[in-house]
């Protein structure tokens, strides 16, 4: 090729990435290797090697339950975010200039507001004297305050709000790449709004949907603050499980093994999403 013989002026040498690559090797990959090494010890004093910690986790129905529940809340939050986020992105694309700015501010603000602040808001909303209970009470629907805080559904809604921007932003990108002529063509050929949406819009925005789901999923299963403050002590999820075992009980090998299992589970889900993403982008380009 002609470009190969020309002196290269538009790309930079790969060695510029060396400092960050070394930094990642020293402070990201090496810690993960040590985490794995620690997990291969059978007792908290780390005197003997073995896979006992993994066996302890995988043979314990309680631990497996914690893992599955954690992976499941990610699914629930992603579905809720998609259900509300897709119409939001759809309306955003149709809004006029100033309304787009307002909507973008509304989407970006939660993304940049501290997660403790966002979670704190839900404590105020869902609490015994919170906005939901006082409204229901004023309307005469309830006599005594409902317990909304420390329930799974309360936590799912709070997590969905906290992670919503991560869903809406990729969807807006995907929808903005959609050729509006396709929608007109679909309408001209007699398809109704629903049919156009399900047969044209959805398939073509699939890469954005998958990207959004991946981000909300990964963020919600590790959302330690929201899980502990809105979910409360009744429900245990993987992040708190790791924290309890390492900091409260000082059982480093078991905490390390839980972390490795959690990492592997997340990696499996991420690769599944990536495979789906590749399939879907092949579909949209063909």
């Amino acid at each position: 090729m002609a470009t190969a013989t020309r002196p290269n002026t538009t790309t930079y040498e790969l060695k510029l990435a060396l400092p960050l690559a070394l930094f990642f090797c020293a402070f990201f990959l090496a810690p993960l290797a040590i985490l794995f090494f620690v997990s291969l010890h059978t007792d908290p004093s780390m005197s003997k090697m073995g896979v006992a910690q993994y066996w302890k986790f995988l043979s314990d129905p309680f631990s497996i339950g914690v893992l599955l529940r954690t992976l499941w809340i990610g699914v629930e939050v992603s579905v809720l975010c998609l259900l509300l986020g897709l119409p939001m992105a759809w309306i955003y694309m149709r809004a006029s200039g100033w309304m787009q700015s307002v909507l973008m501010l509304v989407v970006l603000l939660p993304l940049l507001t501290s997660v403790v602040v966002r979670t704190f808001a839900w404590i105020v909303i869902l609490g015994r004297q919170g906005i939901v209970n006082s409204t229901l009470f004023a309307l005469g629907f309830i006599e005594t305050p409902l317990r909304l805080l420390y329930t799974e559904s309360g936590m799912i809604v709070a997590l969905a709000q906290v992670q919503m921007p991560l869903m809406v932003l990729p969807l807006v990108t995907a929808l903005s790449r959609l050729d509006p002529n396709l929608l007109d063509a679909s309408a001209a050929l007699g398809a109704g709004q629903w049919r156009t949406f399900s047969k044209v819009v959805l398939p073509l925005t699939l890469p954005g949907i998958i990207a959004g789901c991946l981000l909300t999923y990964a963020a919600s299963i590790t959302a330690f603050i929201t899980q502990t403050l809105v979910g409360g002590g009744q429900m245990l999820f993987m992040p708190m499980y790791i924290y309890q075992q390492s900091s409260t009980l000082n059982n480093w090998p078991f905490a390390a093994a839980i972390s490795i299992i959690f990492l592997c589970a997340v990696l499996a889900v991420v690769s599944l999403f990536n495979a789906l993403g590749r399939l879907s982008s092949g579909y949209t380009h063909s």
Binding site: P31, T222, S259, F262
Partner: peptide
């Protein structure tokens, strides 16, 4: 961005 940051936090402490 996608890996659980809490697991990395524990790994960094051990490191």
């Amino acid at each position: 961005l996608v890996l659980p940051a809490l697991a990395f936090g524990l790994a960094a402490l051990m490191f």
